[in-house]
Protein backbone atom coordinates (compact mmCIF):
# COMPACT_ATOMS: atom_id res chain seq x y z
CA UNK A 1 0.00 0.00 0.00
CA UNK A 2 1.48 3.30 -1.03
CA UNK A 3 0.33 6.75 -0.08
CA UNK A 4 0.44 9.49 -2.63
CA UNK A 5 2.76 11.99 -1.06
CA UNK A 6 3.06 15.49 -2.49
CA UNK A 7 6.14 15.63 -4.72
CA UNK A 8 9.02 16.82 -2.64
CA UNK A 9 10.80 19.73 -4.22
CA UNK A 10 14.34 18.61 -4.66
CA UNK A 11 15.71 21.40 -6.80
CA UNK A 12 14.96 25.06 -7.44
CA UNK A 13 17.41 25.61 -10.25
CA UNK A 14 18.44 22.91 -12.62
CA UNK A 15 21.11 23.55 -15.25
CA UNK A 16 21.85 20.61 -17.47
CA UNK A 17 24.15 19.98 -20.40
CA UNK A 18 24.76 23.67 -21.08
CA UNK A 19 27.50 24.80 -23.48
CA UNK A 20 28.50 28.26 -24.70
CA UNK A 21 31.10 29.18 -27.28
CA UNK A 22 32.57 32.65 -27.86
CA UNK A 23 34.39 32.93 -31.17
CA UNK A 24 35.61 29.35 -30.96
CA UNK A 25 36.46 29.58 -27.27
CA UNK A 26 34.35 27.16 -25.25
CA UNK A 27 33.52 29.11 -22.11
CA UNK A 28 31.01 26.58 -20.76
CA UNK A 29 31.25 22.95 -21.70
CA UNK A 30 28.37 20.57 -20.96
CA UNK A 31 27.81 22.06 -17.52
CA UNK A 32 25.20 20.62 -15.19
CA UNK A 33 24.29 22.14 -11.85
CA UNK A 34 21.44 21.76 -9.38
CA UNK A 35 20.53 23.61 -6.23
CA UNK A 36 17.67 23.07 -3.81
CA UNK A 37 15.20 25.69 -2.61
CA UNK A 38 16.92 26.26 0.72
CA UNK A 39 20.55 25.65 0.11
CA UNK A 40 23.83 27.50 0.35
CA UNK A 41 26.36 26.60 -2.32
CA UNK A 42 29.82 27.91 -3.02
CA UNK A 43 31.25 27.85 -6.52
CA UNK A 44 34.99 28.03 -6.89
CA UNK A 45 37.38 27.68 -9.75
CA UNK A 46 40.41 29.33 -11.32
CA UNK A 47 40.15 32.39 -13.55
CA UNK A 48 38.46 31.57 -16.83
CA UNK A 49 36.72 28.52 -15.37
CA UNK A 50 33.41 30.00 -16.46
CA UNK A 51 32.02 31.20 -13.14
CA UNK A 52 30.83 34.56 -14.43
CA UNK A 53 29.53 33.08 -17.67
CA UNK A 54 27.57 30.55 -15.61
CA UNK A 55 25.89 33.41 -13.79
CA UNK A 56 25.30 35.23 -17.05
CA UNK A 57 23.48 32.20 -18.39
CA UNK A 58 21.26 31.82 -15.35
CA UNK A 59 20.37 35.52 -15.32
CA UNK A 60 19.64 35.59 -19.06
CA UNK A 61 22.51 37.81 -20.11
CA UNK A 62 24.10 35.11 -22.23
CA UNK A 63 22.16 32.56 -24.25
CA UNK A 64 23.67 29.07 -24.25
CA UNK A 65 24.24 27.23 -27.52
CA UNK A 66 22.72 24.06 -26.08
CA UNK A 67 21.36 22.64 -22.86
CA UNK A 68 18.45 23.52 -20.57
CA UNK A 69 18.01 25.80 -17.57
CA UNK A 70 14.86 25.42 -15.50
CA UNK A 71 13.75 27.26 -12.37
CA UNK A 72 10.99 27.01 -9.79
CA UNK A 73 8.75 24.45 -8.10
CA UNK A 74 6.96 23.95 -11.37
CA UNK A 75 10.10 23.96 -13.52
CA UNK A 76 10.05 26.76 -16.12
CA UNK A 77 12.73 27.16 -18.73
CA UNK A 78 14.71 30.36 -18.28
CA UNK A 79 16.12 30.25 -21.78
CA UNK A 80 13.17 32.01 -23.42
CA UNK A 81 12.93 34.71 -20.76
CA UNK A 82 14.54 38.16 -20.78
CA UNK A 83 16.83 39.33 -17.99
CA UNK A 84 14.00 41.33 -16.45
CA UNK A 85 11.59 38.40 -16.55
CA UNK A 86 14.13 36.12 -14.91
CA UNK A 87 14.73 38.71 -12.22
CA UNK A 88 10.99 39.00 -11.63
CA UNK A 89 10.74 35.21 -11.45
CA UNK A 90 12.95 35.40 -8.39
CA UNK A 91 16.60 35.29 -9.39
CA UNK A 92 18.68 38.03 -7.82
CA UNK A 93 22.26 38.78 -8.72
CA UNK A 94 24.97 40.69 -6.95
CA UNK A 95 27.83 41.87 -9.08
CA UNK A 96 31.48 41.64 -8.24
CA UNK A 97 31.87 45.39 -8.06
CA UNK A 98 29.10 47.20 -6.30
CA UNK A 99 26.66 48.54 -8.85
CA UNK A 100 24.22 50.90 -7.29
CA UNK A 101 22.63 53.99 -8.83
CA UNK A 102 25.19 56.49 -7.65
CA UNK A 103 23.23 59.59 -8.65
CA UNK A 104 20.27 58.56 -6.50
CA UNK A 105 19.81 58.50 -2.78
CA UNK A 106 20.07 55.32 -0.73
CA UNK A 107 16.34 55.25 -0.15
CA UNK A 108 15.62 55.76 -3.85
CA UNK A 109 17.88 52.83 -4.60
CA UNK A 110 16.03 50.68 -2.11
CA UNK A 111 12.60 51.75 -3.32
CA UNK A 112 13.61 50.85 -6.87
CA UNK A 113 14.54 47.38 -5.67
CA UNK A 114 11.47 46.73 -3.49
CA UNK A 115 9.42 43.83 -4.70
CA UNK A 116 6.48 45.36 -6.54
CA UNK A 117 4.91 45.63 -9.96
CA UNK A 118 7.54 46.56 -12.53
CA UNK A 119 5.40 47.51 -15.54
CA UNK A 120 5.84 51.15 -16.60
CA UNK A 121 2.20 52.08 -16.10
CA UNK A 122 2.10 50.62 -12.60
CA UNK A 123 5.36 52.28 -11.64
CA UNK A 124 4.21 55.64 -12.97
CA UNK A 125 1.24 55.71 -10.61
CA UNK A 126 3.02 53.98 -7.73
CA UNK A 127 2.84 55.87 -4.47
CA UNK A 128 4.83 55.11 -1.37
CA UNK A 129 2.85 53.56 1.48
CA UNK A 130 3.72 53.41 5.15
CA UNK A 131 4.47 49.74 4.71
CA UNK A 132 7.03 50.53 2.00
CA UNK A 133 8.66 53.12 4.21
CA UNK A 134 8.90 50.64 7.05
CA UNK A 135 10.40 48.03 4.76
CA UNK A 136 13.03 50.43 3.47
CA UNK A 137 13.91 51.46 7.01
CA UNK A 138 14.19 47.84 8.09
CA UNK A 139 16.43 46.94 5.17
CA UNK A 140 18.66 49.95 5.78
CA UNK A 141 18.91 49.00 9.42
CA UNK A 142 19.80 45.44 8.52
CA UNK A 143 22.86 46.61 6.53
CA UNK A 144 23.71 49.53 8.79
CA UNK A 145 22.73 52.32 6.45
CA UNK A 146 19.85 53.70 8.46
CA UNK A 147 21.62 57.02 8.95
CA UNK A 148 22.44 57.42 5.26
CA UNK A 149 19.02 57.05 3.67
CA UNK A 150 18.99 60.59 2.26
CA UNK A 151 22.57 60.51 0.97
CA UNK A 152 23.47 59.88 -2.61
CA UNK A 153 24.71 56.37 -3.10
CA UNK A 154 27.76 57.75 -4.94
CA UNK A 155 28.93 59.35 -1.71
CA UNK A 156 29.07 56.07 0.21
CA UNK A 157 32.27 54.18 0.89
CA UNK A 158 33.07 51.07 -1.12
CA UNK A 159 31.96 48.76 1.66
CA UNK A 160 28.78 50.70 2.24
CA UNK A 161 27.96 50.36 -1.44
CA UNK A 162 28.40 46.60 -1.11
CA UNK A 163 25.94 46.60 1.73
CA UNK A 164 23.54 48.80 -0.15
CA UNK A 165 23.62 46.38 -3.02
CA UNK A 166 22.97 43.45 -0.72
CA UNK A 167 20.06 45.35 0.79
CA UNK A 168 18.71 45.96 -2.70
CA UNK A 169 18.96 42.25 -3.40
CA UNK A 170 17.03 41.47 -0.23
CA UNK A 171 14.42 44.04 -1.16
CA UNK A 172 13.74 42.06 -4.33
CA UNK A 173 12.91 39.04 -2.15
CA UNK A 174 14.52 36.60 -4.57
CA UNK A 175 14.25 32.85 -4.22
CA UNK A 176 17.66 32.33 -5.73
CA UNK A 177 20.56 34.63 -4.96
CA UNK A 178 23.68 34.68 -7.09
CA UNK A 179 26.48 36.43 -5.26
CA UNK A 180 29.72 37.22 -7.04
CA UNK A 181 32.73 37.61 -4.71
CA UNK A 182 30.89 39.24 -1.82
CA UNK A 183 33.98 39.50 0.34
CA UNK A 184 36.06 41.51 -2.11
CA UNK A 185 37.10 44.82 -0.63
CA UNK A 186 35.52 44.17 2.74
CA UNK A 187 37.10 44.53 6.12
CA UNK A 188 37.44 41.53 8.42
CA UNK A 189 34.47 42.58 10.49
CA UNK A 190 32.32 43.12 7.44
CA UNK A 191 33.21 39.65 6.19
CA UNK A 192 32.04 38.16 9.42
CA UNK A 193 28.76 39.96 9.04
CA UNK A 194 28.46 38.91 5.39
CA UNK A 195 29.06 35.26 6.22
CA UNK A 196 26.45 35.35 8.90
CA UNK A 197 24.00 37.05 6.59
CA UNK A 198 24.51 34.56 3.76
CA UNK A 199 24.07 31.57 6.06
CA UNK A 200 20.96 33.17 7.50
CA UNK A 201 19.56 33.89 4.04
CA UNK A 202 20.12 30.33 2.86
CA UNK A 203 17.63 29.13 5.44
CA UNK A 204 14.77 30.56 3.44
CA UNK A 205 16.14 30.53 -0.10
CA UNK A 206 18.84 29.21 -2.38
CA UNK A 207 22.12 31.09 -2.36
CA UNK A 208 25.02 30.58 -4.78
CA UNK A 209 28.27 32.24 -3.77
CA UNK A 210 31.15 32.59 -6.18
CA UNK A 211 34.31 33.23 -4.25
CA UNK A 212 38.06 32.91 -4.44
CA UNK A 213 38.75 33.26 -0.78
CA UNK A 214 39.06 29.78 0.77
CA UNK A 215 38.84 31.10 4.32
CA UNK A 216 35.54 32.71 3.52
CA UNK A 217 34.18 29.53 1.98
CA UNK A 218 35.30 27.49 4.90
CA UNK A 219 33.30 29.73 7.16
CA UNK A 220 30.21 29.33 5.00
CA UNK A 221 30.43 25.63 5.76
CA UNK A 222 28.44 24.41 2.78
CA UNK A 223 28.56 22.20 -0.30
CA UNK A 224 31.17 23.32 -2.83
CA UNK A 225 31.16 23.01 -6.60
CA UNK A 226 34.49 23.30 -8.38
CA UNK A 227 34.40 24.56 -11.95
CA UNK A 228 37.19 24.00 -14.41
CA UNK A 229 37.26 24.80 -18.12
CA UNK A 230 33.56 25.31 -18.19
CA UNK A 231 32.37 22.16 -16.50
CA UNK A 232 32.04 20.71 -13.01
CA UNK A 233 35.24 19.11 -11.81
CA UNK A 234 34.12 18.09 -8.37
CA UNK A 235 31.29 18.58 -5.91
CA UNK A 236 30.89 17.96 -2.21
CA UNK A 237 32.03 19.36 1.11
CA UNK A 238 35.05 21.62 1.12
CA UNK A 239 37.15 18.94 2.76
CA UNK A 240 36.01 16.41 0.20
CA UNK A 241 36.86 18.53 -2.82
CA UNK A 242 40.14 19.78 -1.47
CA UNK A 243 41.26 16.18 -1.23
CA UNK A 244 40.35 15.52 -4.86
CA UNK A 245 43.67 15.18 -6.71
CA UNK A 246 42.31 16.77 -9.87
CA UNK A 247 41.16 19.80 -7.94
CA UNK A 248 44.51 20.06 -6.27
CA UNK A 249 46.20 19.93 -9.60
CA UNK A 250 44.16 22.54 -11.47
CA UNK A 251 43.33 24.92 -8.69
CA UNK A 252 44.85 24.54 -5.32
CA UNK A 253 48.17 23.29 -6.51
CA UNK A 254 48.91 26.44 -8.44
Amino acid sequence: MTTIAPPRITSLLEVSGVSVTFDGFRAINNLSFTIGPQELRAVIGPNGAGKTTFMDIVTGKTRPDEGTVTFGEVPRSLLRMSEAQIARAGVGRKFQRPTVFEDQSVSENLILALKAQRAPWRVLFWRETGQDRAKVAALAEQVGLQDHLARKAGELSHGQKQWLEIAMLLAQEPRLLLVDEPAAGMSFLEREQTTALLVELAKTRAVVVVEHDMEFIRRLNCKVTVLHEGSVLAEGSLDHVTKNPQVIEVYLGR
Partner: peptide
Protein backbone atom coordinates in the same frame (compact mmCIF):
# COMPACT_ATOMS: atom_id res chain seq x y z
CA UNK B 1 14.07 56.97 -10.42
CA UNK B 2 13.76 54.12 -12.90
CA UNK B 3 14.36 56.49 -15.82
CA UNK B 4 17.55 57.78 -14.26
CA UNK B 5 18.44 54.18 -13.56
CA UNK B 6 18.17 53.44 -17.28
CA UNK B 7 20.37 56.43 -18.02
CA UNK B 8 23.05 55.44 -15.55
CA UNK B 9 23.04 51.65 -15.74
CA UNK B 10 20.29 49.97 -17.66
CA UNK B 11 21.73 46.49 -17.22
CA UNK B 12 21.52 46.80 -13.46
CA UNK B 13 17.92 47.90 -13.73
CA UNK B 14 17.18 44.89 -15.87
CA UNK B 15 18.56 42.61 -13.16
CA UNK B 16 16.20 44.33 -10.74
CA UNK B 17 13.39 43.02 -12.94
CA UNK B 18 12.48 46.19 -14.81
CA UNK B 19 11.50 45.72 -18.47
Amino acid sequence: SALRGIRDDEQRLRFLGYP
